[in-house]
Amino acid sequence: MTKNDIENSLKTLIITGLRLDDITPEDIDSDLPLFDTEKGLMLDSLDAVELVVIVEKEFGVAIADAEEARQAFTSIRGLADFILSRQTGN
């Protein structure tokens, strides 16, 4: 999977898995913050719990602690980078 594929896949998975009913994948900019309280997708801590499970189930990548969560959950692009780096072992 290319980084672009992962980003597109993440957008769809986030919308369906987190039940964000009022947006489409096209509405999501890959650089939008995921967990900012004022802008971007404005996901919260309970979304994070569900997102960790989605990432592990779909991409086989575990997010183990708060530090990794900070690295991974910056934006769709950031999360795709994190997944790719874990999959390739870099």
Partner: peptide, 18 residues
């Protein structure tokens, strides 16, 4: 697990459960 980081704490809790 420090709850003052709500996202990080629940991610860490999930990892511990795993």
């Amino acid at each position: 697990i420090d709850a003052s980081d709500p996202v990080g704490s629940l991610v860490e809790a999930s990892a511990a459960l795993k």
